[in-house]
Design a protein around this nucleic acid. Structure first.
Lengths: 206, 206
DNA sequence: AACTAGTAAGACTGGTCTGTCTCTACCTGG
DNA sequence: CCAGGTAGAGACAGACCAGTCTTACTAGTT
């Protein structure tokens, strides 16, 4: 889990001109990997395409990532940061004032997300189903999905709801189901899930 | 293209015209395809493995199926018959007496299914996410998912529920979400979805 | 007996894949 | 200036892929 992504001096900003070599190569690889893996999954993206799109030599790629799977693990971590935390949870917290509103706002954020022409579904679900739950990448995806549930559980606790872990598991069913429905083309899936989510909140009060 | 799962020694005797070889070869291919595609997806299963496991020559394979994708389409149709209709819908109808009970029984059937050690999730969701909604196989998967929704809608109409199509779409979110959760390892996902499903029924009465 | 049709076995084509390795150029620290 | 590390470019290995084609065998029909 801590193999590739943390080897990058991630939070540290890259020096624009100086030491353009190392950090730039890794950052370019990660940026391209995010773009390709999130939109097309793992198996459809080859190492040759990755290095060509990042303008990186193959030896450079394998110097920084011991294998393609290591890069996928780094991508999953990046996805957790950029998508789960920044795009969904933080945005939902920003949109609502009370924890209950913030919970329900998740499905408003989903609504905007579903409408994007480059809607790419949930990478954790995609990779879990693509590789299977026994594969290391599938296991890692399960871990990141559990982290999403953790965010929901935290909001449930802030809202004072009963049995927050059960609540989060039921809530997560609505999130995942609506994502699949959106992939099928149902643009109202977020509204349908939000309605059921409101009933769920109601039944977890007191 | 007749049923292949129980066709190992062939249930219906082959007509004289169909020289035993022909039908047997197709049935063996379909049986192996069902086994491999449902458990490992499309891309992980190669034509060479398919023909080896079916004891069929490569030329025979391509005489009956113009391409691997054509075999996957045949598999999806078979999956609709064997899994959607026979294993889920018919079984749920058998377990309940009223349409409402039959609807809720879907998640009881799911509970038994989730507990199987060879639980393989939903092939339509798997292939939709594996190939993407624009790919012919993804589009076919979307069609078969719509058929599932049609079964739910029929039960909703029998139960006299309001807005049966909306009901079926919301219900399907619960089905798909619980399947993903079961893939992650939550063996109570069917119970959680069933609880929310009961509330959904309640709100569609009258 | 000859013909036909379907079969198994497998070589083969042209392409893909991950990962290793070589070669050369550059930049930086000492 | 020079040594060491990193960079890009790309050849190469070994395996796999979908799909075509050849060969030889078998069984039913005429």
């Amino acid at each position: 889990m801590s193999s590739a992504a943390e080897s990058v001096p991630s939070p540290v900003q890259t020096q624009p001109e100086a030491s353009a070599g190392h950090a730039d190569a890794v950052d370019r690889i990660l940026a391209v990997a995010y773009e390709l893996f999130s939109r097309r999954g793992v198996r459809d993206v080859g190492v040759n395409e990755l290095i060509e799109r990042s303008g990186v030599a193959k030896a450079t790629f394998y110097r920084h990532f011991p294998s393609k799977d290591a890069l996928v693990l780094a991508f999953l971590e990046q996805r957790d940061r950029q998508w789960t935390v920044d795009a969904i949870v933080s945005e939902a917290r920003r949109r609502g004032t009370t924890p209950t509103e913030q919970l329900l706002a998740i499905f408003d954020v989903f609504g905007d997300w579903f409408l994007r022409e480059d809607f790419e579904a949930c990478s954790f679900i995609n990779i879990l189903l693509e590789m299977g739950p026994a594969h290391p990448l599938g296991k890692a995806s399960i871990d990141y999905l559990a982290r999403i549930r953790g965010h929901v559980q935290a909001l449930a606790e802030e809202a004072g709801l009963a049995r927050p872990e059960d609540f989060a598991r039921s809530w997560h069913i609505l999130m995942k189901g609506s994502i699949i429905s959106a992939t099928e083309g149902d643009m109202q899936a977020n509204k349908r899930a939000q309605q059921m989510a409101a009933w769920l909140i109601e039944h977890h009060r007191g």
